[in-house]
Design a protein around this nucleic acid. Sequence first.
DNA 1: GGTCTTATGCCAACAGGGTTGACCTTAGCC
DNA 2: GGCTAAGGTCAACCCTGTTGGCATAAGACC
Lengths: 255, 255
Amino acid sequence: MPKQVVPERARRRRRPTRQGSVLSETLIVHTALRVLREHGSTGLTARRLGTALGADPSTLYRYFAGMDDLTRAIGEELMGRALDDWTATGDWQADLRALGLAIHSSYLAHPQAAVLTASRVTGRPREIAVDEAILGVLRDAGFPDATAVRVYHAFIDASLAFAALDAGSLALTDEARATDEEMWNSTYATLPADTHPHIAATARLLAARMTHSAYPVVLDTLLNDAAARLTAAAAARLTTARSPGPARTGANRRA
Amino acid sequence: MPKQVVPERARRRRRPTRQGSVLSETLIVHTALRVLREHGSTGLTARRLGTALGADPSTLYRYFAGMDDLTRAIGEELMGRALDDWTATGDWQADLRALGLAIHSSYLAHPQAAVLTASRVTGRPREIAVDEAILGVLRDAGFPDATAVRVYHAFIDASLAFAALDAGSLALTDEARATDEEMWNSTYATLPADTHPHIAATARLLAARMTHSAYPVVLDTLLNDAAARLTAAAAARLTTARSPGPARTGANRRA
DNA sequence: GGTCTTATGCCAACAGGGTTGACCTTAGCC
DNA sequence: GGCTAAGGTCAACCCTGTTGGCATAAGACC
């Protein structure tokens, strides 16, 4: 049993397993994603992953400190894929919208993995790269630092929170998800109007809307709010330039 | 072993356990919350809960179909507590703000339970009551049905998503949480400015903000946006009344 | 090319998890 | 007061993550 895990870049000997596969961190993470897809969010076990790799389960501990460490590596992979799918255009609002949607869909592409990792902060390189990118877009757009950090915080936490929430329903088995979605047509749609007048009155609208993610709506609301603060601050600067004296904008007060 | 669980209201015989306690669904849920608080989010096990109740672990299967079913019951309890802590005043924006914060803090009061349940839709009575209350506040405030449903969707999903996300960090062990929070002072604060200029420039602000929840900021942004749509729609109605003809407001277009 | 070191894969075992089937006891109905 | 079956208990099943000891071959060195 390994006293400590050898970091990937320091590995020299690559000894094939009995079944012939040559292991590596990336191979393990990719295989883990496949196992998660095939067996669900609770189906990633050391033994099963070992079998999928053609290796003994305990071998995993030569690469990761434990299943928890492996989980963080999977999260890091998903965040990296989101960043790879994204390119900045210079329009800050469009760029952040695209990045938010990229993060969201990267996680939803592997919902079973997202459930495990979306609420974890890994502190690994590619996650840090995403943070740097977001802050860069905001500061380059002209947001003062305090406001940029405020917008960044709401943006990243909302994106991860919705990724986790939406992945949760996607990660259900097909029948369970069908049951859940049917609930808006069965349970909620059949509530009597005398006990639940408001649900009864809006049942059709609820059934149509609740099966989709609220993330795009929330994301656009956040970004529009930020844009309004940015133009307000710019206008305030113009005013201040003409008539001297301290003028505190809404954005500045917050920040 | 029970073929099927007897629903709580159909229970007649209440036979005390060997150690004298008389079981019920509510006693089990309350005890589960205590066990979660004492042993953490991974510390709720059938055996431990059995011990805490003074009963054999397998007895739980007389009351719940499995640990998963018990988890949903715990979520229902937390949602119910949020509703109990809330009273409507008639000011829709203040009421929704209070309800959102009540939901958030109800879950955060039992973070270990929240992690397990916040991303699950139970469809149980008290959760439905919360939905009815939200829709009632919005429709009574004058929101057209389509907009009310839209706002409701963003509101409830954001509240649950952030409850789960924030509970996730609170549910960590004390040392793990301390490590996570220190990351903003260690990892992020020490990144060199030439590779990560934007993080380096805002490191102090990040450390100050990222250890708090972004939920209040997001909640207020959502509610302010809804308020703006409401007044815009009202103004549009006035205009329409004077000069006939179809006038499409932003809110109506969305809805 | 031969030798040595040790990284790395494998095996067996442990404690603890959810869940189940069979059994027993007693509460509540007739 | 007797009967029935609800509900509590027991023992066992197979699963999980994890670890210590061991064997083997990869690559460094001469």
